[in-house]
Design a protein around this nucleic acid. Structure first.
Length: 643
RNA sequence: GGCGGUGUAGCUCAGUUGGUUAGAGCGUUCGGUUCAUACCCGAAAGGUCAGGGGUUCGAAUCCCUUCGCCGCUACCA
């Protein structure tokens, strides 16, 4: 019977659009799942949404929607995104589903009966405005609310608590006895350090809002986030229901992996195992924790950084390109950086030049020298052949090890070693020279066979990563379906192939400068549309007073000789004397009608030449789509300041 | 303040249990090649392996210490 593999992402909280940071987890799990699938495992991949809580209730209210409508919308949007990214999940669980609620209620009641959950008083600092509780350590200086900065008051609320302290020791023992339980190790150390300090019991219910799962025995209470959310890993498998076949199969199967970002480490490394211990369910999972993609901005903006969404990248560059970048660029165990440059560079160097071009040149040569058909040739192998085969073999072995250790980025790099070796092999064997010598036809065929075979292996290894390109590779190379399977990943399985007559590049080469600029623009655009009432655009009084704004009298006005939108004005600015301004108002004003009028102008702007006419200042005028209106003044004197 | 991590070529990073000339990719310079998406291949320049001290026949690798950065955590205000 096939080994089983159960892999999960956290369930996402619908409080904002999913950006590339959020989607990383999902793509990572997808790649791992496809890999295990390819290796013959019986796999189950779960993702979903965490849809309860105060915040959702509030947002839904603002939108004038029932909360369920609100979360329905977001769930639909999310599922569509996963579809676009070809995420291969088997189930999409939502905490608002009945199948989940009943399980949570059962779990809660059972823990209550056992005494692992007990009623008590939750003491916290309450912010009237935000209607939420905070612990003392969460508060800003002077006991202010961390969200809105207002004053908070110490309040007590009835709450149920989960007895964490009881399991502290047991959990420490477990972690010690299972060194691979939390990876990478640095994260495990954090957890152990935290545990050693001792645990406080966890508040697991609320009475201050309704949007959640009711506590059966005391419906005044709603189950608070963690028991609700974490249980999804069980409820989706049918735990504690009549049909718990999946639970039996996958939870007690060969491998169970929870993949999470570092922000929710503690909940998965401490609360979740303790819940399982209390429920007497064996801890069969391992927890893998990854870092985040940061987004550094160039010099353009000094502030934080733009946000980029997966849709943008998929539309402009393709799904494989995005998946490749995400999986290849985040270092194991730490954070990574997304920059337009790094993204475009990776596509060009790795995908287009090294990989895509290798396929292209191989197919071209097979067409050119052998009319598209090559047969395995084993006579007289050269040292180059042997080395190539050796590298292929080592690559496959390393790839397996690394993928099994969840080191996907490293596994990808390994595959590229084979690609590089193959490119070098072409230089060493110089097929174009062999082609000139008829007696070397066999040798030449051998070379091309080696290349095709290397590419076939690369194609198999990259199947979990590059969904479209791996297929295209097989198709163009003429690899039959049976030889695309992982069982055939050894060198020499291919006996003969017929390649396509007209190869097309797997990945287009991009213009770095152009694309980087384009991306930066997109990032900035999305950043701006994200801002609601940002203080970013605020200008200090200091900055404003740098401007010298004056009343000016138009003494002479004429059309610009060389531009039909511009007027050239000579203005009197009192003690500053007269000067010339160029203004773009010719479409709305006749020169004659401005003469003698009092206008407002900024007079300390850097002088510029506008189509040959000097302009020493700016005439102030308002405008909309329909019209434009110069600001006129009635009774002031030329040179009077405007503030 | 405590704990953990980290500081290696211009940039991003690898460096296994301490062992001959410290590596890769990108960038730079030079050269080769033409099958290919002006791609690919090779070579060179470039490092007091954060600073100091120590252990050792020998340290980027172990120990002590100083400084910088990151993460977790505490406390004061």
């Amino acid at each position: 019977m096939a080994k089983t593999y159960y892999i999960t992402t956290p369930i996402y909280y619908p409080s904002g659009k999913l950006h590339i940071g959020n989607t990383y987890t999902t793509v990572l799990c997808d790649a791992l799942r496809r890999y295990k699938d390819m290796r013959g495992y019986d796999t189950f991949y779960l993702t979903g949404m965490d849809e309860h809580g105060k915040k959702i209730e509030t947002v839904a209210k603002e939108r004038n929607l029932p909360p369920i409508k609100h979360v329905d919308e977001i769930a639909e949007e999310t599922e569509k995104l996963w579809e676009r990214m070809r995420i291969s999940h088997d189930d999409f669980i939502r905490t608002t589903e009945k199948r989940h609620k009943t399980v949570v209620q059962k779990i809660f009641e059972r823990l209550l009966d056992q005494g692992d959950i007990y009623p008590g008083m939750y003491e916290g600092y309450y912010c009237m405005h935000c209607e939420s509780f905070f612990t003392e350590s969460q508060l800003e200086e002077g006991n202010l609310c961390p969200d809105c900065g207002r004053e908070t008051s110490k309040l007590q609320e009835e709450s149920y608590f989960l007895r964490l302290s009881k399991y502290e020791k047991k959990l420490l023992d477990f972690i010690e006895k299972n060194p691979g339980f939390i990876t990478p190790e640095s994260r495990k150390n954090e957890v152990v350090a935290f545990l050693r300090q001792g645990l406080q019991d966890l508040s697991v219910s609320r009475t201050t809002f309704d949007w959640g799962i009711k506590v059966v025995s005391n419906p005044k209470h709603v189950v608070y986030v963690w028991i609700d959310a974490l249980s999804n890993y069980l409820s989706a498998l049918g735990y504690s229901t009549d049909d718990d076949a999946k639970f039996q199969k996958y939870w007690f199967g060969d491998e169970v992996v929870h993949v999470v970002g570092k922000d929710i480490l503690r909940f998965h490394a401490i609360y979740w195992p303790i819940m399982l211990m209390a429920l007497d369910i064996p801890i069969t999972f391992r927890l893998h924790v990854h870092g985040f993609y940061m987004q550094k901005e160039g010099k353009m903006s000094k502030s934080k950084g733009g946000v980029i969404y997966p849709d943008t990248l998929i539309e402009n560059y393709g799904l494989d390109e995005l998946r490749y970048f995400l999986l290849r660029e985040l270092p194991y165990g730490s954070d990574g950086v997304f920059t337009p440059e790094s993204f475009i560079d990776r596509i060009n160097f790795d995908l287009a030049n090294d990989f895509g071009n290798l396929l292209n040149r191989t197919i071209s040569m097979i067409n050119k020298y052998f009319q598209g058909k090559v047969t395995a040739y084993s006579e007289a192998t050269t040292p180059y052949d042997e080395d190539l085969r050796k590298v292929a073999e080592a690559t496959v072995a390393d790839y397996e090890t690394l993928m099994d250790e969840l080191k996907v980025a490293e596994a990808i790099k390994t595959a590229w070693k084979l690609i590089s070796r193959a490119n070098k092999y072409i230089d060493e064997t110089t097929p174009w020279l062999l082609a000139k010598d008829e007696s070397k036809s066999g040798e030449l065929e051998n070379v091309l066979y080696h290349l095709a075979e290397s590419l076939r292996i690369v194609g198999i290894l990259l199947r979990p990563i590059l969904l479209e390109a791996s297929r295209a590779l097989f198709k163009q190379l003429g690899v039959p379906k049976s030889l695309r399977e992982y069982e055939t990943v050894t060198f020499g399985e291919l006996s003969e192939i017929t390649v396509t007559k007209k190869p097309s590049p797997l990945f287009p080469r991009l213009d770095v400068k152009e694309e980087v600029q384009k991306l930066q623009k997109v990032i900035r655009g999305e950043e701006e549309s994200e801002k609601t009432e940002e203080d970013e655009t605020l200008v200090s009084l200091d900055d404003f007073t740098k401007l010298d704004v004056r009343v000016a009298k138009v003494v002479e006005c004429r059309n610009h000789p060389n531009a039909d939108k511009l007027l050239v004005l000579t203005v009197d600015v009192g003690d500053l004397g007269t000067r010339q301004l160029v203004a773009g108002v010719a479409k709305h004003y006749e020169p004659k009608e401005l003469e003698g009028k009092l206008v407002v102008a900024i007079v300390n702007l850097e002088p510029v030449n506008l189509r040959g006419e000097k302009s020493e200042g700016m005439l102030l005028a308002g405008s909309n789509e329909k019209t434009m209106e110069i600001l006129f003044v009635k009774d002031l004197e030329p040179g009077d300041p405007v503030q």
